[in-house]
Structure formats: structure tokens, C-alpha cells
Amino acid sequence: MDDLYLAATGSWLPPRVLIEDAVADGRCPAPLARTTGMASVAVAGEESAPDMAVRAARQALERSGAGPSDIDLVLHASFFHQGHDLWAPASYVQRAAVGNHCPAMEVRQVSNGGMAALELASAYLAVAPARTAALITTGDKFCPPGFDRWRSDPGTVYADGGTALVLSRREGFARLRSLVTVSAPELEGMHRGDDPFGPAPFSHRPQVDLDACKRAFLAETGSSYAVARVGAAQDAAVKGALAAAGLELGDIDRFALPHLGRRRLQAGYLGRFDLDPERTTWPWSRGVGHLGAGDPIAGLDHLVVSGALDAGDTCLLVSVGAGFSWSCAVIELLRRPVWAERT
């Protein structure tokens, strides 16, 4: 991709709850703790999802040095309820963190929302030379009564937090070498099941139950149908991003993977692509949890700040969301940013 850079990343994560404590008080089933391999999960207090996105945005903007006049687009991605009905959280992020009047829009592509926003922002900046930078944020809070972070999607423990990324046409600490998205809409029913369309949220059940939807979908299609299509689309996204960057899988230094439980991660990524977990974000993400749309940005931010990525290194950002869609991006670190050295 031509002349697109990452000027800064940012994240804001609330305090962690130890999995052993959640098991002891009954919040997390013991079998789930064992199969996911999670150590802790980020759980917010009074903070709302958009407020956590704002905190991450302020950090990313400060790190980038970008002012209000430099931001030409604000995209906010989310997975779950943002705290109000018929409301525009992207405008809230823009008002609270940026303070300008450029277009501000929300991206709703569930767990792939952050990468979908990156793809849209890349195109928006590329088509007009006068456009300088875009701010991408994510923010989610998975809480009762509508969502049980431990049980609503068994195999993945959901976390709260906000992330942000400033994409620039001028300069940055890293270059976006490729970005590929692949969609498989024939799988959209996996998160719909056989439920009829409802007139309002939670019309059919009081709490999200993705496992029930998945069981209903697989009862009709068969598991081999879904597995084959998931594998093919996932492979296409990974191979496409590598090919567009002119690289092989072995050339990648680090991998920012979805924050799934260990069993799902092993089946979908570690085993499938023969990845060493220590070269991925797993050792860190098992202490955070699934951040909805924010996993790839949070993972990259961690790899940069921790020093796991240095000048000349490459990182593959991998993301998947219901629908289903898969996005992969190759990032090349040009230099270790000053703000990472100060952290």
C-alpha cells in the first residue's frame, strides 16, 4: 500500500480480574477456565465503552502529535451496546478526544470492526491527496444483563477496554504494507441461528447466547460445511496479505492474533499455521481477554510498547468477525517510537 503509515497507537484497559477468583465465586465455570487457558480478564467499573475509546484516542493523538486540523476522518468500531439507544458514539469520541468537524462514523462489523475501520480509513485517505490522517477507535464493555463475558460465547472470555490508532499519509513509526479482507456471508447465520427477526433487542432471550445460535446453524448445515468455509476464507486473508506485502509466513517476526481462548486459538491459528505462541500476542492476551473490535490494535500497541517489535521487524495483524469476515495486515516497523521508549 502506498504511503500509509501508523503514526501512533493507544489503548486503555481497566483492572484485571483473576480467572481463579472468578472461578471461586462462580462467575466463570471451571471447565471454561481450563479450556481457554486464560489468566485474567480486563473488567471495567463505571467506565462506558465510548469513554474507554476516548481515553485510548487521547493517548494515541498525544503520541502522534496530531492536532484537530490533522484528522480528516474519525471511525469508531464497536461490538456491543455503547450506552445509549439511537445515538452516535463516533461523534462522542470526536467531540471528547479530537474537537474538530471532520466526518465521524461508526463501523459495526463485530470483532472485525477495528480492522474494517482500518481498511475504510486507508481508502479514504488514499483517494484524496489533501487528506492527512484518520483516527480509528474501538470501545466495548461486555456486562449484564445483556451479556455474560464468561458464558455468552463459550471458548472466548470477553474483556472491556478501548483502543486507538492514528493512520497517516505523511509519516509514522510503522508502514502499512498490505491489508486484505475476505468475506464469507454464507456463514452469517452462525450468529443468528434459527431465531426470527425481533422487533427490539433481546426480544427472544434476555442475554446473548452465541452458542445456541451456533448449534442451530450447524444442525442445519453440518459442521464440515462451516469448517471448510472458515478455513478457506481465513487462509485467503492470510495468504493475500502476505502476497501483497511480498513476504512469506516465515518472514513475519510477530503475530497479533485474536484474543480467543487457547483451544480456539490452537485450532484456528497456532496449529493451522504452525506458529510459536511466544511469537504471538497469546502470552499477553491470555491476561486481557477478547476486546471485541479492538484485539489487533491492542495487540500491536502491546508489541510496540513492550519492545517485542523493533526497527525492521514485521508484524501480521489477524482479525475475524461474525458475518463472517477476516482481515489481515502486514505492518513494518520503521523505528521504535519515542513514546514507546518512555512507557
Rank of each mutant, 00 (worst) to 15 (best):
D2A: 08
L6R: 01
A7F: 01
G10F: 03
G10R: 05
G10E: 09
W12Q: 07
W12Y: 10
L13P: 12
P15G: 04
R16N: 11
V17A: 15
G26R: 03
C28P: 00
A30K: 12
P31T: 11
L32A: 10
R34C: 00
T36S: 06
A39P: 02
G45T: 04
E46P: 08
A49H: 00
A49F: 08
A53D: 08
A56Q: 05
R58S: 14
A60T: 10
A66M: 11
A66N: 06
A66Y: 09
P68A: 02
S69P: 03
I71S: 06
L73D: 06
L75H: 06
A77E: 01
Q82L: 05
G83I: 07
Y92E: 03
Q94K: 14
V98P: 04
C102N: 02
V110Q: 15
A116Q: 07
L118G: 03
A121E: 09
A121Q: 04
S122M: 08
V127P: 00
A134M: 05
L135R: 06
D140F: 09
P144E: 12
G146H: 15
D148P: 04
R151T: 15
S152Y: 10
D153V: 14
P154D: 06
P154L: 05
P154M: 07
G155I: 02
A159D: 08
G162F: 09
T163Q: 12
A164W: 01
V166R: 01
V166S: 01
L167G: 07
R170A: 13
R170W: 10
R170N: 05
E171W: 03
F173Q: 08
F173T: 11
R175I: 06
S178P: 12
V180Q: 14
S183W: 05
A184C: 11
P185K: 13
E188M: 15
R192Y: 04
R192D: 05
A200R: 15
F202I: 00
P206A: 12
L210Q: 14
D211W: 11
A212G: 04
R215Q: 14
A216F: 06
F217P: 01
A219N: 15
T221E: 11
S223P: 00
S223Q: 03
S223W: 00
S224V: 15
A226F: 15
A226L: 12
A226K: 10
G231D: 13
A233M: 12
Q234I: 00
Q234M: 15
A236E: 14
K239N: 13
A244F: 01
A244M: 08
G246Q: 06
G246S: 02
E248H: 12
D253R: 15
L257H: 10
R263P: 01
A267I: 09
G268N: 10
F273S: 08
E278Y: 02
G287N: 13
G294Y: 04
P296V: 01
I297H: 11
D301Y: 01
H302F: 15
S306T: 11
D313V: 07
T314I: 10
C315P: 07
L316Q: 07
L317K: 04
V318F: 08
G323P: 11
C328F: 05
E332W: 00
L334S: 09
L334Y: 02
P337G: 01
V338R: 13
W339L: 03
E341H: 04
